[in-house]
Design a protein around this nucleic acid. Sequence first.
DNA 1: GAGTGGTCTAGACCACGAG
DNA 2: TCGTGGTCTAGACCACTCG
Lengths: 238, 238
Amino acid sequence: MEPKYKHILETIKTQIIEEKYPAGSMLPDQNTLAKEFKTSRMTVKKALDMLAIEGFIYSRRGSGTFVKKNALAQQDALPVNDYGGLSRRFSKSRVKSKPIVFDVTFPTPEVKERLELKQNEPVYEILRLRLVDNTPYALEHTFMPISLAPNLSKEILFDSIYAYLTKEVKLEIGGAFRKISAEKTEANDLKYLESEANDPILQVEQVVYLQDGRPFEYSISRHPYNGKHAYTIFDRKK
Amino acid sequence: MEPKYKHILETIKTQIIEEKYPAGSMLPDQNTLAKEFKTSRMTVKKALDMLAIEGFIYSRRGSGTFVKKNALAQQDALPVNDYGGLSRRFSKSRVKSKPIVFDVTFPTPEVKERLELKQNEPVYEILRLRLVDNTPYALEHTFMPISLAPNLSKEILFDSIYAYLTKEVKLEIGGAFRKISAEKTEANDLKYLESEANDPILQVEQVVYLQDGRPFEYSISRHPYNGKHAYTIFDRKK
DNA sequence: GAGTGGTCTAGACCACGAG
DNA sequence: TCGTGGTCTAGACCACTCG
C-alpha cells in the first residue's frame, strides 16, 4: 500500500506540471487540502515538505505556499545524486565498456585511506574505457574492497558494475564524495581518450559510500576535452 | 522559542560527535527517546529524519536506527550547497577582490535566457579577479538583473556581493544550477590568473536562484591550474 | 512473537504576515 | 484581527526484521 502522503505529493506535482497550479500561484491552504484529500493536516504537510525539497514549491509562514517560478524546470532535472553511473544517464544500448586492467592487488596508502581499509585487505583494481556511441567518454580507474563483492568477474566489466552490485549483491548506495578538477593530459589519455597533447582533462575523483557509511568504491574518471564534457549539478537549499 | 525537535537533533548530534553513540552503534528506539526527551514519538521521528538527511544516521524498519560508519566525517563537511561564495570558504581577511569591469548593459541572448529576462531589461556586468592570500583564485564574470539590486555600487565589489545582497537587500537564496568543465586557457587567463599557455582551466558556470525560483545571478568563474583547485561535493541520497 | 520504524489521526497552540 | 504555516500531542495501526 502506497503511503497517503506520496499520493498527495504526486497529485499536486502533476497539477503543477499541467499548470493547473501555474508558476508563482498560491496553493490552497493546508486545511483545505486536508479536506480535499480526506486526510489530516499533518499528512498534507509532509507531502508539501517533500515537494519543497524537490524544488517545486516553497512555503512562508503567515502567507501561504507557492509554486516556484522555475518549478517546471524541475520535472526532468536529474536529482543531485546520480549514482548508477553511465548506464543511467544514457540508454543502455549506447554505452560500452572496454576493460583494460582487471586485477586484485594490495592498495596503495592513498587507496587504503580513501576506502578506510584495515591491515592489508586486498582490493580490485579496474581500469575501463567507457564509450558512448562508440566515442571515448571517460577513462575510469576504480578500486573496490574485495570483501564487499567477492564474486566480481571480468564479464561484468563489459556491462554495468553498478547494476550488478545493487541488483545482485543488493548493496545500497548512500552517497558520494566527489572532487572535480581540471588536469593536464597524460600518456593514457592520449592512448585511450584520443586526446591531443595540450587538451585539458576534466577529472572526477569520487568515493561512493553505502547507506551505513562504509566506503565501497574509490574511482578517478578522466574525461576528454571536446567542448561537450561538463559535470552538472542542481543544488537546493535545506 | 526553539522548536523541540531541533533541541533533540542537536543533543543527539553532539552525543554522536562525542562518541557517546559510537559509529555503527544503534540508537535507543524512538519510544525510549520520546520518554527521555519528554515528548511524543512524532517529534523524535522528525529529529531523526533530519539527522538522516544530514548524513549522521540511517534507519531500517524492523531493525533500528544506527550511527553511520562515517558519521564523524559529516560534522565539518560543508553542506552540498555553498552559497555566499569565497568569503564563507575562507576567512574574510584572506579574500580580496579586484574589480576589472563594472558596467550596466543590455544582455546578450545567452545571458537573457539564463536569467529568464523579458524584453530588454538591463543587467549589471561585473568582471572581478578574486584573490586568496594575494594569489589569483578565480576570474569571475557575473551578470545580474538590475531590478533585483538597484543600488549596487562599485565600492561593494571590493567586498562580498553576497553579503550585501542577503543582508542589506534581504534576498533569500534558494538554489543553484552549476556546470563544471575543463577549458583551454584564454587571453584573460594569461593576463589576470597568471596562467601559462597550455594550462587547463577549471570553469564553473552557475545560475543562482532565489527561494521563489527567479534567477538572480549568472556567472562564469575560471580557476587557474596549480594542482590545488578542485570543486568538491558531498552528496547524500534522498 | 516481540520489537523496531513508517505512517496517520484529530485535534491543539503558537508565530508570522498582511490588511 | 484573521488566515496562514510550523510545531506538537497521545494515541493508533501497520510493515518489516530477527530470533
